[in-house]
Design a protein around this nucleic acid. Structure first.
Length: 847
DNA sequence: GTAGGGTTAG
C-alpha cells in the first residue's frame, strides 16, 4: 500500500514480468527472479527500471522511510550498487541498539542472495560483539574470510578483533591483532581495540604495557589519539597506577589532547580514583570545556575518599551554576550519604531528585535502598519498593542485571530492617538460575547480622551443597563466619576456614581473616584466633582490635594489652573503638587499676574524648570488681546523659555483689528510660533472692506475670560429634536424658563431698533449700555439661554456649567438676568465656 | 571513547 502511494503514477501499469536487461544481469539466481514473478497484483506496481529503483531508495532514505527501504530491497534483485542500502539499514539498527534486528537483516539479505561488502561486515561484527554471541560472530568472521575481506581490509579486521573481545575470546582477538602486526597493516584503531579488550577484561597491566609499546614505536602513522587515552586512563585508575596516569597526562598536554573534554574527564577521573584529589581538582580547574561528567568525576572522587563535605560543596556549586544535574550526579550524592550511614539525608536528596523530575535509574534505586537499610527506615524502604514496582521493574529496555541488582537491594533492605518474612519470600520467588552470589549473600548476611544465625548457616550450606553448587565470594564467606561466631559454631567455622584457604580468596583475605579471628575467639579458641592473626600478610585496625576483643572475652587481659602496645608500635591509628576494647579487656580480667589509668589518660595521651560507651565499660569494670559506689559516682559525674547500657552494667554488678540498694536505683532509672525487658526483671529478682528478700522477689515475679513479661528460658548448647545438642531448663526431651541425669546426680554427689554447697539463691523459686538444690540441677548449662562429658573423648575440651549469663551456682559447680573430669570446660555465656580447668576458672571471680 | 550502584570485619 505504502509503495503505491510513493510511486510516480507513470509506473503504475508496468509489470515486472519483463525485467530490463541491467537488472536481469544483476539477478543472481532464478529463485529471486521467481520471487519477482510472484508478486501480488497490488505489488506489481513496483518499478522495473533500475534507475527508478535507485532514485526511489534514495528518496526513502533521505526522508527516513526505512521500512520502505526494506520493502523495496526485498523486491529488488540483488545488485552491488544497492548493497549500500542494506548496510544503511543494518548500521541504523546497530546504532538503535537493536542488534538482533541487525543480524536478522544480515541473514535476510544473504538469503535473498545479496552479497555483503566490506562495509556490511564491520556493522554485523559489531552487532555480534554487542550481543556477545561468539558462535555467530565466528561464522560472520568466516564469511568475511571466504569473501576475501578479512586480512585485506583493516576496517573488517579491526571490527573482528573488537567482536572477539566483546565475546570474551581475547586470545582469538590477540591472534588476529598479531597477524595484522606481522603483515604491517594496522592503524590506531587496531591498537585501541586490543588495548580496550585488555581494559575491559581487567588486565590493566597488559593494557598499560600495550599503550607504552604503541607510543614508544615512534611510528608516525601510529599515533595514540584521544580515544587511546580515554581507553587506557581508566586502566590507570583501576590499577591505581598514578605514575602511568601522570605520564599520560603529560602525553595529552604534549599532543594538545587536553582540549578534548573526554580526555580531560578521563584524567580527572584517573586522579580522583587514585585518591590524588589535588591533581584531579587542578586538571578540573584548568579545563576550558567542562561538562556534567567532569563535575561528577570530581564529586564522586571526593565522596569516595572520605571528603564528603567537599563533594557536597561541589554539588551545591553545580546547582548554583545551573549545571544540569543528571542521574549520575544525584546517585553519587545519595550513595555518598548512604555509605556514611546518613540514610535520612540520602532520602531527602532522593525526594529532591524526584521533584526536579530527574528519572532515577537502577543505580539510584539501589543507593536509596541501601540508605533505607543503613538506618532501618522500613517505611521509606517500602515506599521505594512501591516506586520500584510502579516505575522500574519490567520496564521495556531494562537490563535484567540492573533489575536483579535492585531486587538484591530490596532483599537487603528488608533483611536489615529485620523483616525476614518479606526478604525470604522475595528470595524464594527468584528462580534458581537467576539467583546470583549477591542474592544469596544479602540473604545470608541479613540473617547473620540480625540474630538469625542458624538460618544464615542453613542457607549457606544449601548454597554450597551439591544441589546448588554456587561458589561463595569473599562477602559470603565473611557473612557465614559472622554467623558461626554468633553461634560459637567452631566446627563449621573451621570447615569454612579450610574452604577459604583451598579456594584462594586472596583479594578478600583481610576481611575473611578478621572474621576468622572473631569466629575463633567467640567459639572459644582464642589461640587459633591468634594464629590467624599472626599469619596475616596485611592487618588493619580491625584485625588488631578483633584479637584484642578475643583476649578480653577470655579474661586474658595482659595479652590484650600487649596487643594494644603492638598496635601502637605498628603505627596504627588508635580511635574510640580501640579504647572500648581496651577497657572491655581490663574489665573482663579484673584489671581495675590499669583500666582506670587508660580511661583517665585517653584524652591527654591519645586525644580521644571518652564517650558514653567508654563510661559503660568503666561502670562494668568497677561493678564487676564490686566497687559499686565508685561506679555510681562515675555515673553522676558523666558529662552526658547515662543511657540504658550504663544502668544495665551497674545492675549486673549489683547482681554479682548482692547490692539491693544500688540495684533498685538502677532499675528505677531504666524504667524512667522506658527500658523494659525480661533480663532486667530477672536480674532484680535475683538480687532480692540472694538477699533472701523472698517477698520482694515474689513481687517482681508477679509484676512480670501481670505485665506479660516472660523470662527468656535459659538455653545451652554443646557441640558434639553428631552435631549440636540443645538443652533448656529441666529439659527431658533428649534421648540420653536418663544417662545425663544419672551422671549429674553422681557428679553432684561427688563434688558435695569436695565441699560444694548449692547456692540456692540462684533458684528463683520460693521453696525449701533441699528442693532448690534439685531445681539447680536442672539448669541448662549443667545438662549440657553432662551430655558433653558423656559424648566427648577424654582429654578433649567441652565447649558449651549459653544464651544468658551463666548462673552462679553452675559456675561453682563447674569449677568443682573440672577437678574430677579429664576435660577443659569452655563455657561461653552472653558476657564472656569461662575456661574451667583443674578446679579453677579463668574469670577469677570477675564474671 | 569519559562519570554513578548492591553483599563483609573491631
Amino acid at each position: 500500500m505504502l509503495l503505491s502511494l510513493t510511486f510516480p503514477p507513470k509506473y503504475r501499469h508496468r509489470t515486472t514480468t519483463a525485467l530490463p536487461p541491467l537488472l536481469l544481469k544483476l539477478c543472481f539466481s532464478p529463485s529471486t527472479a521467481h520471487q519477482c514473478h510472484s508478486l501480488s497484483a497490488e505489488e506489481l506496481t513496483f518499478p522495473t527500471d533500475p534507475d527508478a529503483t535507485a532514485r526511489l531508495l534514495s528518496n526513502c532514505l533521505s526522508s527516513d522511510r526505512h521500512s520502505d527501504v526494506l520493502s523495496i530491497l526485498r523486491r529488488t534483485p540483488p545488485c552491488r550498487a544497492a548493497v549500500f542500502y542494506w548496510n544503511n539499514l543494518i548500521k541504523r539498527s546497530v546504532s538503535l541498539q537493536d542488534q538482533r534486528n541487525a543480524l536478522h537483516l544480515f541473514d535476510e539479505m544473504r538469503s535473498l542472495k545479496w552479497i555483503p561488502d566490506e562495509y556490511t561486515y564491520p556493522y554485523v561484527l559489531k552487532a555480534c560483539g554487542d550481543l556477545s554471541v561468539l558462535v555467530t560472530g565466528a561464522s560472520v568472521h568466516g564469511l568475511a574470510l571466504i569473501s576475501g575481506f578479512t586480512n585485506s581490509n583493516v576496517f573488517v579486521d579491526n571490527a573482528t578483533i573488537a567482536m572477539y573481545g566483546r565475546c570474551g575470546a581475547n586470545d582469538k582477538a590477540r591472534q588476529l591483532f598479531d597477524e595484522m602486526l606481522k603483515r604491517g597493516v594496522f592503524d590506531t584503531i587496531s591498537w585501541n581495540s586490543i588495548i580496550s579488550i585488555y581494559v575491559q577484561s581487567g588486565d590493566f597491566r597488559r593494557a598499560l604495557r600495550m599503550f607504552e609499546e604503541m607510543v614508544s614505536r615512534g611510528d608516525i602513522m601510529l599515533r595514540a589519539d584521544a580515544v587511546s587515552l580515554v581507553n587506557v586512563l581508566p586502566a590507570c585508575a583501576s590499577a591505581k597506577s598514578w605514575r602511568s596516569g601522570m605520564e599520560m597526562h603529560g602525553y595529552a598536554i604534549r599532543r594538545g589532547l587536553l582540549e578534548d573534554v573526554f580526555v580531560g574527564n578521563a584524567i580527572v577521573d584517573m586522579y580522583a580514583k587514585c585518591g590524588l584529589m589535588d591533581g584531579a581538582k587542578n586538571v578540573f580547574d584548568r579545563m576550558e570545556m567542562k561538562d556534567v561528567v567532569s563535575w561528577n568525576a570530581l564529586v564522586t572522587g571526593y565522596s569516595q575518599f572520605g571528603k564528603f563535605d567537599d563533594a557536597l560543596g561541589l554539588f551545591e556549586r553545580m546547582r548554583e551554576k545551573g549545571i544540569e544535574l543528571n542521574v549520575v550526579t544525584w546517585s553519587a550524592v545519595i550513595a555518598g550519604y548512604a555509605q556514611r550511614g546518613l540514610g535520612y539525608e540520602a532520602l531527602d536528596v532522593f525526594r529532591e531528585m524526584i521533584v526536579s523530575r530527574s528519572q532515577p535509574n537502577a543505580v539510584t534505586l539501589v543507593s536509596v535502598l541501601s540508605a533505607c537499610a543503613a538506618v532501618g527506615a522500613l517505611v521509606q524502604g517500602k515506599e521505594t519498593h512501591c516506586y520500584v514496582i510502579k516505575e522500574f521493574l519490567n520496564l521495556k529496555g531494562n537490563d535484567p542485571g540492573d533489575e536483579m541488582m535492585v531486587i538484591n537491594g530490596l532483599i537487603d533492605m528488608y533483611a536489615k530492617c529485620k523483616i525476614f518474612g518479606i526478604a525470604r519470600a522475595m528470595f524464594n520467588s527468584i528462580e534458581w538460575k537467576d539467583r546470583s552470589v549477591v542474592t544469596w549473600t544479602v540473604m545470608i548476611g541479613g540473617y547473620a547480622q540480625h540474630g538469625e544465625a542458624s538460618d544464615a548457616l542453613e542457607l549457606f550450606c544449601e548454597m554450597v551443597s551439591n544441589k546448588c553448587r554456587i561458589m561463595p565470594n569473599g562477602f559470603t564467606i565473611s557473612c557465614a563466619l559472622v554467623a558461626c561466631a554468633r553461634l560459637g559454631a567452631l566446627r563449621l567455622g573451621k570447615e569454612i576456614h579450610t574452604y577459604a584457604l583451598r579456594n584462594r580468596y586472596e583479594e578478600a583475605m583481610l576481611f575473611i581473616s578478621n572474621c576468622l579471628i572473631d569466629m575463633y575467639a567467640k567459639s572459644g579458641d582464642v589461640d587459633a584466633a591468634r594464629a590467624v592473626f599472626n599469619n596475616m600478610y596485611h592487618r588493619n585496625a580491625v584485625s588488631w582490635t578483633s584479637i584484642m576483643t578475643g583476649y578480653g572475652l577470655h579474661g586474658r587481659g595482659e595479652e590484650a594489652l600487649q596487643i594494644f602496645e603492638g598496635m601502637r608500635k605498628a603505627g596504627l591509628a588508635v580511635d574510640g573503638v580501640t579504647f572500648v576494647v581496651v577497657l572491655y579487656a581490663c574489665s573482663h580480667s579484673g584489671m581495675v587499676g590499669k583500666g582506670l589509668d587508660y580511661f583517665n589518660n585517653m584524652r591527654n595521651d591519645f586525644g580521644i574524648v571518652p564517650e558514653v560507651e567508654h563510661y559503660a565499660c568503666m561502670v562494668d569494670l568497677l561493678g564487676r570488681a564490686g566497687r559499686l559506689n565508685e561506679a555510681m559516682k562515675l555515673i553522676k559525674d558523666m558529662p552526658m546523659q547515662p543511657n540504658p547500657i550504663i544502668w544495665v552494667a551497674l545492675l549486673s554488678g549489683c547482681r554479682l555483689h548482692g547490692n539491693v540498694e544500688i540495684g533498685e536505683h538502677a532499675v528505677n532509672k531504666l524504667l524512667e528510660l522506658n527500658f523494659e525487658n525480661d533480663g532486667l526483671y530477672t536480674l532484680l529478682s535475683n538480687i532480692y533472692a540472694s538477699a533472701r528478700r523472698w517477698k520482694d522477689a515474689a513481687k517482681i515475679r508477679l509484676l512480670m506475670k501481670n505485665s506479660g513479661i516472660r523470662k527468656r528460658p535459659g538455653c545451652s548448647w554443646v557441640q558434639g560429634k553428631k552435631g549440636t545438642a540443645t538443652f533448656f531448663v529441666g529439659d527431658k526431651s533428649h534421648p540420653m536424658t536418663k544417662e545425663i541425669y544419672n551422671l549429674l546426680d553422681d557428679l553432684i554427689y561427688r563434688i558435695k563431698i569436695m565441699g560444694y554447697v548449692p547456692e540456692t539463691s540462684f533458684a528463683l523459686h520460693d521453696v525449701d533449700d533441699e528442693e532448690k538444690g534439685d531445681l539447680l540441677l536442672e539448669h541448662s548449662e549443667k545438662l549440657a555439661l553432662a551430655y558433653g562429658i558423656l559424648t566427648t573423648a577424654p582429654g578433649l575440651p567441652i565447649r558449651i554456649t549459653k544464651n544468658l549469663r551463666v548462673c552462679g551456682d553452675c559456675h561453682t559447680a563447674f569449677t568443682y567438676i573440672s577437678r574430677i573430669v579429664e576435660h577443659e570446660i569452655i563455657l561461653r555465656d552472653s558476657s564472656r568465656f569461662h575456661h574451667f580447668k583443674n578446679g579453677s576458672c579463668s574469670c577469677k571471680g570477675y564474671w
